[in-house]
Amino acid sequence: MQTNLSTNKVTHWGKELRRGGVLWIPFIPLLVFALAFEILPMGYIIYSSVHTSKGFGLEAYAQIINSKYYLISLRNSLLVSIAVGIIGLLIGTIGALALRSLSDAWREKLLTLVNMTSNFSGVPLAFAYIVLLGVNGLVTVLAKEKLGLDLYGAGFNLFSWTGIVLVYIYFTVPLAFMLMYPAVYAIKQDIIEAAQIMGASRAYFWRRVGLPILLPAMLGSFTLLFANALGAYATAYALTSSNNSLVSITIANLVTGDIFPDPTLASALAVVMACFLSLSIAINARLKKSSGGMGL
């Protein structure tokens, strides 16, 4: 009786709360900021991409499609992001799986370390790699002196595609690790043992149960890693500032560059890039819904 009475009172109060009065006022400044710095800039890019000097039209998009240069930068970005996403995901997943063999306390310590390294990206990361693997980098010199291995002579170049992919993988691995950990952790010891009791080998278990459980999470994580790499700018800029072959750098150069500023074209490229990003985010959201939150 007693508890019944009080819960009734609570739901009654809940209804009362619904009629909030003037409580919507704090939303106004938030909305103003979101409009000014988030929604309108996005809208402005779309507007600007179809607003040419001759009026409205899709010339900028046509220019992208007809230009080898822009298509190549777009293709480069997509290829790098896919490659980096896949390699990062594999390393991260293997790492998360290996983490299962540790005790809880150790697991948590290592996870925070991984989390910490995920902050190491952008200009500082590019710079650390230059110090290590640049033409006169520590590793480059040491490899030559001690191992007689001439990295640059063998075709390696930090300031080229190999370098970009190498550095991108570095900042992707910690993210992949953190994204895959919850999914890997969901494969509890008990189902492994259940399979073991029934006589399944480890390989059979992973083929029939483990991997199928991981796959949606891997796909979901991949979309995020891909989006992250596609949007990245600072790392590549610091590494190869003059090399325009990635789409994010091309976009920025088209707006700020002193040579051929073309905001309309930049906006059109940005819209194309945003479409790829939205697509991957949408796939991620879809996966998350269907697997009950595993995709993150």
């Binding site: 710095f37 988030e38 929604i39 309108l40 800039p41 996005m42 402005y44 890019i45 600007s48 989006a227 596609l230 949007g231 990245a232 700018y233 600072a234 994010s248 976009i251 920025a252 707006v255 700020t256 905001p263 930049a266 906006s267 940005a270 890039m273 945003a274 990003l277 939205s278 985010i281 959201a285």
Partner: peptide, 19 residues
Amino acid sequence: SILPFAMPGVILAIGMIQM
């Protein structure tokens, strides 16, 4: 909070510069 994922720094920046 999900929109920024579709507009990373570069895109946000060129939108804001123009505006």
